[in-house]
Simulated scan of single mutants.
Amino acid sequence: MAKATEDLGFDGFFRSDHYLAMGSGDGLPGPTDAWTTLAGLARETSRIRLGTLVSSATFRHPGVLAIQVAQVDQMSGGRVELGLGAGWFEQEHAAYGIPFPPKRFDLLTEQLEVVTGLWGTPVGGRFDHTGAHYTLTGSPALPKPVQTSSLDASKAGVPVIVGGLGPKRTPALAARFAAEFNLAFPPLADVGDHVARAHAACEAIGRDPRTLTMSAALVLCAGRTDAEVDRRAAAIGRDPLELREVGVAGTPSALVDRLGVLAELGLERVYLQVLDLHDLDHLELVASEVASQLG
């Protein structure tokens, strides 16, 4: 799927970061760690952006995460982005013995402080942090990513993606740390308000809102005909009518129209969630009959 993404001209391949399948079934073949997979894909691809949408702050110590992401950025030649969220799927934590604290937003905030602080420490310097959740003492803050920070070009740093539909704290966190603010499966009617709140959060701290990329992740279900759309919806266990309402779904002309509306609402990037990873023809259809119509 990642190689097809690159070959067909898409801009990036981003992974969910989960350890447990959702819904019924035997769960085979079992989970793959997102950053382990992305390390492999960094060596198997040459152009596309690679990242998570999103990693859970509960899964990894921020010092370990900073090292992992920096190394994958090096492996890719500077093509990595880190989507980081608070985590929400309690069952996967129970299944693998991962702590799931009830209040995770402060944990996420401190992780962003540590990760960006480690990357931004000059080579030869030391990074210290004492917080409610993490203490780092005398860290050499290595290795460094290939990329420089989008918020401070004098410092190393992978672009950070912060996402969510919360009205206050999430936009404020994005304005402080992120290169991109992502809306995860938002109702179409709410997108404009979310964009406005993110822009206001930037202005509140003196940041130019134009420096914060606005994006959304939506389920993809495309077909050359309505019957093909219905077939693909059935393959992923979704209602085709519901997908046409809330996702990027339908025939090519419908997809072009939906993406156009999202652009008018202020989105600059759209992640198309492909749920059937064996259906490479799905990607080919979007590349040949949808992307070619976009300006």
Rank of each mutant, 00 (worst) to 15 (best):
G164L: 06
A189P: 01
G164C: 07
T58F: 09
H93V: 03
I236D: 00
G237D: 07
R169S: 15
D208A: 05
E242A: 13
N182K: 00
P252N: 08
L20M: 07
A254I: 03
G163H: 02
L272A: 12
R126I: 01
A189K: 07
T58R: 09
L275E: 13
V64N: 13
A222W: 03
P101Y: 10
F10N: 08
T109A: 07
W119M: 02
T225Q: 01
L151I: 06
A287W: 13
D208H: 08
P145C: 07
V290T: 07
R210K: 15
F59S: 03
T137I: 01
H199C: 12
R224T: 14
S16A: 15
T148E: 04
R244M: 07
R126A: 04
T135R: 07
V195Y: 06
Y96Q: 13
G117P: 10
A172C: 11
A70P: 05
A94N: 12
P167R: 07
G97S: 10
K103F: 05
A201S: 12
G78V: 01
R197G: 12
P62Q: 12
G131I: 07
A70W: 09
I205V: 15
Q91G: 11
F59R: 00
S46R: 04
G23S: 04
R15F: 14
D279M: 12
D208Y: 04
L275V: 11
S292R: 15
L82G: 02
Y271K: 05
R79D: 00
G131P: 05
E268G: 14
G237E: 08
V80N: 01
L265K: 14
S253T: 13
E264P: 08
T116V: 10
S154M: 10
L20A: 10
V80R: 00
T137E: 11
L108Y: 11
R104C: 13
D106A: 15
R47Y: 09
V69L: 01
A204F: 08
D257G: 08
I98P: 08
L262Q: 01
A178L: 10
G78L: 04
G206L: 14
T170A: 11
G12Q: 05
L218P: 04
V191E: 05
V72H: 00
C202Q: 04
A153T: 14
R126Q: 03
N182C: 00
A200Q: 09
V64T: 14
F185I: 05
E242I: 12
A175I: 09
D279C: 13
